[in-house]
C-alpha cells in the first residue's frame, strides 16, 4: 500500500468520523444555545432513534424509508416531551443548569437501561449479514452509508445556518441565546424558543443516531459514545456556533485519525479529552464562539 493511498484513506476516515462528531455537536449546541445546560439525554435520543428504526424496519419489516421518517419524528417528539415535562418544570422551580444537567443525565441512564432491557446488550444491525465493499474515491474507499453521513452533515449544517440567520425562528433562537431576559422584554416567548430548539436539535440527534446505526450497528451505549465526541466538537468549536462546531468536528476527526495512525488506537479517547482540556484552558469560548455571559432563563 503506497503512502498516497494510505493518507487519502486516513483523510477520508477523518472526514467520516468528523462528520459524525459535527452532526451530533450541531444538534447538541442548538439545544444548549437557548436552554443553557448540558443536555446529556441528547445521547439517549441518538440511541432511541436507531433502535426505533431497528424495531420498525427489521423486527416489523416496515419499509426502511418510512421507518426512518417515523423514527425522526418520534425522536423530535421525545426531545420536546423531555423539555416540557422535565426541564421546563425545573426552570420554573429556579433549577440551575447543574440541576438540569443531572436530570438530563438521569434520563440518559434510564433510556439506556430501558433499551438494554428491551433489546439486550448485543450489537443489532440494520442490514443483517450484508457487507458492501466501499465505493472507490480516488485511492480510498467509502461505503454508501458513510457517504450519506458526510453529505447529511453538510446539508444539516447549511439548513441550520439558514434557519439561524435567515428565518424568524432563527432570529428568535439567537436573541434568546444572546440575552433571554431582553428577548422576553421584546415579546419573544423564551419557552417556545427553547421547545423549538429541543424539537429541531432532537431531530438532528435522530438523524445522527440512524446514520451511525446503519454504519456500525446499534448498542445501548451508542448515543453516549457519540455524544461525548459531539460535545467535544461543540465546546472546541464554540458551543453556540454551528460553523465552529462543524469545523471543530472535522478537525477532531483529522486529529483522532492521525493520532490513531501514529499511536496505538486505544489512545484515541485520551486524545479527545486532551483536546477538550486544551480548549477549556486556552480558549474556553472555542474556535468561533463568543464568551458566554451567565444568564438565567
Amino acid at each position: 500500500m503506497d503512502q498516497g493511498r494510505m493518507w487519502s484513506q486516513i483523510l477520508l476516515n477523518a472526514l467520516i468520523a468528523g462528520s459524525t462528531y459535527s452532526l451530533v455537536g450541531i444538534g447538541f449546541s442548538l439545544i444548549f444555545s437557548p436552554a443553557r445546560f448540558f443536555h446529556m439525554a441528547h445521547g439517549g435520543i441518538i440511541t432511541v432513534a436507531g433502535y426505533l428504526v431497528y424495531a420498525m424496519a427489521v423486527l416489523f419489516k416496515l419499509n426502511h424509508s418510512l421507518s426512518i421518517f417515523i423514527a425522526l419524528f418520534l425522536a423530535a417528539i421525545l426531545g420536546s416531551v423531555m423539555e416540557l415535562l422535565v426541564f421546563r418544570r425545573l426552570r420554573q422551580q429556579k433549577g440551575s443548569g447543574t440541576i438540569q444537567l443531572i436530570a438530563s443525565l438521569g434520563i440518559l441512564v434510564v433510556l439506556q437501561n430501558l433499551i438494554s432491557l428491551v433489546f439486550g446488550d448485543d450489537v443489532m444491525v440494520l442490514n443483517p449479514g450484508v457487507v458492501k465493499e466501499g465505493l472507490q474515491i480516488g485511492a480510498a474507499r467509502i461505503t454508501d452509508v458513510q457517504l450519506g453521513i458526510v453529505l447529511t452533515n453538510i446539508v444539516v449544517f447549511l439548513l441550520i445556518s439558514f434557519l439561524l440567520h435567515r428565518t424568524k425562528i432563527g432570529w428568535m433562537i439567537r436573541a434568546v441565546t444572546d440575552d433571554a431576559e431582553l428577548a422576553q422584554i421584546f415579546g419573544i416567548s423564551v419557552e417556545l424558543v427553547i421547545l423549538l430548539a429541543f424539537f429541531i436539535g432532537s431531530a438532528i440527534a435522530g438523524i445522527a443516531g440512524i446514520l451511525i446505526a446503519y454504519d456500525i450497528g446499534l448498542t445501548p451505549l451508542l448515543g453516549f459514545q457519540a455524544l461525548f465526541m459531539g460535545v467535544v466538537a461543540a465546546i472546541s468549536g464554540g458551543i453556540t456556533s454551528p460553523t465552529g462546531t462543524m469545523l471543530a468536528g472535522l478537525l477532531l476527526g483529522i486529529i483522532m485519525q492521525i493520532s490513531a495512525w501514529l499511536l496505538p488506537t486505544q489512545w484515541q479517547e485520551a486524545i479527545a479529552f486532551t483536546i477538550l482540556l486544551l480548549f477549556l484552558l486556552l480558549r474556553p469560548q472555542g474556535l468561533l464562539g463568543k464568551p458566554l455571559r451567565s444568564k438565567k432563563v
Binding site: 484513506q9 486516513i10 476516515n13 456500525i216 485519525q257 490513531a260 496505538p264 488506537t265 486505544q266
Partner: peptide, 18 residues
C-alpha cells in the same frame, strides 16, 4: 494492533494493518 472492546471505528486500524 490493539483495539478497544467498546470501540466501533476501526477504519484507521484497518488501514494500518493493510
Amino acid at each position: 494492533e490493539a483495539y478497544n472492546k467498546d470501540g466501533s471505528d476501526f477504519r484507521t486500524l484497518v488501514t494500518k494493518l493493510r
